[in-house]
Design a binder for these strands. Structure first.
Lengths: 330, 330
DNA sequence: CTGAAAGCGCTTACAG
DNA sequence: CTGAAAGCGCTTACAG
């Protein structure tokens, strides 16, 4: 490989001058800069990052531990948010996909330490409480889409309650009056908070709770999650006669569309449907397109990266707003 | 940070002995090894990878250029396949997500060169021909899910034709006789090859081509792809009266399920449905579950990594077999 | 504005 | 089996 010394010999200057040019030191005489640039081009020289890192004692690496992140498609936006900023700031985002069976979180942290990562983002697949290895505290660290109970780490999570309040308020503003909320399991954080948000909206509008039915349709049997949305939706639509259905996630909405069609109900006309996530292509695959609250994954990835970039150390617990993606389902 | 010298002082040996222990050199006396290991543990020493790379003149880095890879969820398996092997072989997989608008492929290659990547995997989002920057040839490189026309690079792509032949043969074996194939656009490779595979199966079974209708339902208007599956499916089912429908991708199958329900046809009973991709949760979201040909992305990622690991240099063009995922849709 | 020396944290090559 | 020296490709700190 071509080194700084090869370039120097080719250009007829000291190798330190080459280093100056590579690092944009303005004190180099234009004439010499020209010569060096020409030599760099002719020899195809590229600075050796490992050597730079060694001497500078700075890695420029931010670690990203993805805790089973990639089973759900849109969660990848967490990485994208961080990676786009990393590129912009000339940092390296080292992504480690952690999977309980294959390599532990401790292993990933160790790995990042060997690379002298300047900060670590730990991200979870779904909004939940996590316990992270204590060694993580040796380096600036931030949690995305999760938080730890100890309060030792700053974190950012989606504002579930506000999202549920907002989408419900939007339904009410459009004149819908009887809402069926087919919720996620209430054992998970999103399920609990979204329920609270829906209830808040009804309370704020002085509407009786007789006008809303909230039911979990994701059940857990033998460690496996299963949706009972179809059975429950058909039954509840007939009995409760909602004019709008809010779904805990877009895949539930797919099931509800089938049920609606089977019952002869036209979505967006006979019944309004709304949802959460903006899950991959699902919302546009449905007809009419599904209006849904998009998870702020890209923003959370950016926020986490910026937290580290800014050298912050406050243990803030931040929330990120969903955004309403309007289509035609209500 | 703790260095090799700190450990040596703490353990009372020469720093070279610490280096030997870290690198599992068997010639170290057990007594000394013990002492060093103890010191490493007590001081929390971790070898500095950048320094190792500098001195060894080996980076241990394999680059992975993901060409807009992540817009389709299952394509992530390409990365997973490579990354799992990288971890196992103690290599670093440096993933660069290339997006035409943001940073060019050339930029990504340059970046990888600065890190002295020992090999590069270039992967495309969908099976297609690509033209890669010529500088890529400076380092061992392999193409995954794509190939270049020049023949300069080894490549692996899904065996589209064989997959189409296999799923069609499976339909015929189960007694289905009239097949409607709602294909992808024939401008893309998968569309062309799958059509050929379906036709091959019919020919091999000495069946008249009157028993199969093949039609593209993904149309391109003003640079935007749009599915016309619903309109076409309803029409073709009525006119052609197929007993099975093969869909060019799982999202098309979702549309077909809606059409079937609207026509009062029960999937798996009145009409068989089959598909390609195994796209995220879509096949299990449908009722009954969708039998589909899963793309071999994980395998292709592994194959590409192994190609580089083995130090091969033959310009092979490899194909990878889909796998049939049996559910209950036919 | 430029260069020769020293040093980053390691491994290589060699001597004992 | 162990260690002192040299060197990887750079940047830092300093002298001119």
């Amino acid at each position: 490989m071509v080194t700084i010394k090869d370039v120097a010999a080719h250009a007829g200057v000291a190798f330190k001058t080459v280093s100056r040019v590579v690092n944009n030191d303005p004190t180099v005489k234009p004439k010499n800069r020209e010569k060096v640039l020409k030599a760099i081009h002719e020899l195809g020289y590229r600075p050796n990052r490992a050597a730079q890192m060694t001497r500078r004692k700075k890695s420029g690496i931010i670690g990203f531990i993805a805790d089973e992140l990639l089973r759900v498609p849109y969660t990848f936006d967490l990485i994208r948010g961080a990676q786009d900023l990393a590129w912009r700031h000339n940092k390296e985002l080292m992504v480690l996909n952690v999977n309980v069976d294959k390599y532990s979180v401790e292993g990933a942290v160790d790995h990042l330490f060997e690379h002298r990562a300047e900060g670590i983002i730990y991200a979870a697949m779904y909004h939940r409480e996590v316990s992270v290895p204590s060694q993580l505290a040796e380096v600036p660290a931030v949690l995305a889409n999760c938080y730890d109970s100890s309060g030792l780490y700053p974190s950012i999570v989606p504002d579930e309650k506000e999202a549920a309040r907002e989408i419900t308020q939007t339904l009410l503003d459009k004149g819908y009056q009887r809402v069926l909320f087919l919720n996620l399991n209430e054992n998970i954080i999103a399920g609990r908070l979204r329920k609270a948000g829906v209830e808040q909206a009804f309370a704020e509008n002085n509407l009786s709770t007789e006008n809303v039915v909230i039911e979990s349709v994701i059940v857990r049997e033998n460690q496996i999650e299963r949706s009972v949305a179809r059975e429950r939706a058909a039954d509840l639509i007939t009995r409760f006669k909602p004019d709008a259905i809010l779904c805990g996630q877009d895949p539930i909405a797919v099931e509800v569309y089938f049920v609606a069609q089977a019952l002869g109900l036209q979505v967006g006309k006979d019944i309004g449907i709304a949802s959460f996530d903006d899950w991959d292509i699902i919302p546009t695959l449905l007809q009419p397109g599904l209006t849904t609250m998009a998870l702020p994954h890209y923003y959370m990835g950016q926020w986490a990266f910026n937290y580290l970039l800014d050298g912050r150390s406050d243990k803030i617990r931040e929330t990120a707003r969903f955004s309403l993606v309007n289509r035609q389902s209500f």
